[in-house]
Design a protein around this nucleic acid. Structure first.
Lengths: 207, 207
DNA sequence: AAACGATTCAAATATATGTTTAAATCTTTT
DNA sequence: AAAAGATTTAAACATATATTTGAATCGTTT
């Protein structure tokens, strides 16, 4: 019988997929290799075999989650580069909130934990993955505010927008951890919240 | 003597003070009793003697941090109840940002970690300490928006304000962990940022 | 089919760390 | 000062978990 058990060449991939979920749920420290391997239906030694150690698996799982995320929601929100800056900014806000709200978005779940309890990998991710998105949004805000806007105000407005978006991230994960609480039901409709953030923010930016 | 008053030992107090800082820096899981006791210059068994276990010390340390915080910055920002709602809202925003920005505010550092990786204590903290502040701010926003404002919009505006304030919390702790990065120098001046948040938010609320 | 490398497995190892214990020491009361 | 109680200490204990090991198994090539 050629296939008595699941194809062994897929073990590595199963580990990455399961790990991205477990790390997103528990964070690097509290996630255990034992649980990841159990859910991936493999032996704990396979982490050492396929990834050398826990941290390397963490990095691979994170990168996988990130790629999955952007594949579904491109960061520009589908707005072309020829649209007016206000619309492109709105598109980016919609895309960011959509990625944050997606129930299977493990990338932002990991980022959320990393920002509170950074591992040694955070600086690289911040620089390579987050900063390009950040610079793109800052450039759009600058366009909206016009050429005479000063740098400090641009950064303040960027902080205001990012803060509003990441607030959804916090609320979402608290609710995931304590479904019974239902402390913030008003943010359940993430697309409506996105429109609010756009309205709330463009009021002070697009003048 | 019928009332031999129990005098709190200095060791117990030293443990609480050190623990609130260590827990704020590392979170519950990554903080070790060994390090806390070393910095408090006592034996590791004193945690068991004075507090039964690590979690009880965590709770005591968190309560201590919370009391210290509110002693320095009252939540209403020093604005009297007779002032117009816009000013009282501005006062609360200033107070919240001041408490978040205070370098020795361990309460918000712990809350920041708890929200990303909750322990069993978070629901109680959220309900007993955070929710009263939340309800007070929501009431103020409602006053500012007027009687015809719908509940959803009130909550959205509240989310926008809290998101902006807590963004400072995130940025602050990333910078504490990676001083070399200097990724967000624009938020160094927290009082200026507070004025921006007030201006940015009241533009959409106070109409 | 045999050989060989790749993969999986159960078990052992190493380490970190929360907890407990019992003796020693200090403080208070009588 | 003696006794009783409170506190501190060093050491042992227990547990959790990342990592390593060497043998067993699988898949591919010859």
């Amino acid at each position: 019988m050629p296939h008595p058990k699941p194809k062994p060449s897929k073990t590595r991939m199963r580990l990455i997929i399961v790990a991205s979920r477990i790390f997103a749920e528990k964070g690097f420290q509290e996630a255990t290799i034992a649980e990841i391997c159990k859910q991936a239906q493999t032996n704990i030694a396979s982490v050492n075999y396929h990834f050398r150690d826990k941290e390397s698996l963490y990095l691979e799982a994170w990168r996988y989650a990130f790629r999955q995320d952007l594949e579904i929601n491109p960061p520009d929100g589908g707005i072309g580069a020829d649209a007016p800056p206000e619309q492109r900014l709105a598109g980016r806000i919609r895309s960011l909130i959509a990625r944050i709200a997606a129930s299977d978005s493990y990338f932002f779940a990991i980022i959320n934990k990393e920002m509170a309890q950074p591992t040694s990998l955070l600086p690289e991710i911040l620089e390579k993955e987050i900063n390009p998105q950040r610079q793109a949004m800052i450039a759009l805000i600058k366009e909206c505010l016009g050429p005479e806007a000063d740098a400090r105000n641009i950064h303040y407005c960027h902080a205001s927008i990012i803060g509003q978006c990441f607030h959804l991230l916090r609320v979402k994960h608290i609710q995931n951890n304590y479904p019974a609480m239902r402390a913030y039901p008003e943010l359940d409709d993430s697309t409506a919240y996105a429109e609010h953030v756009i309205y709330f923010s463009l009021g002070r930016i697009d003048i």
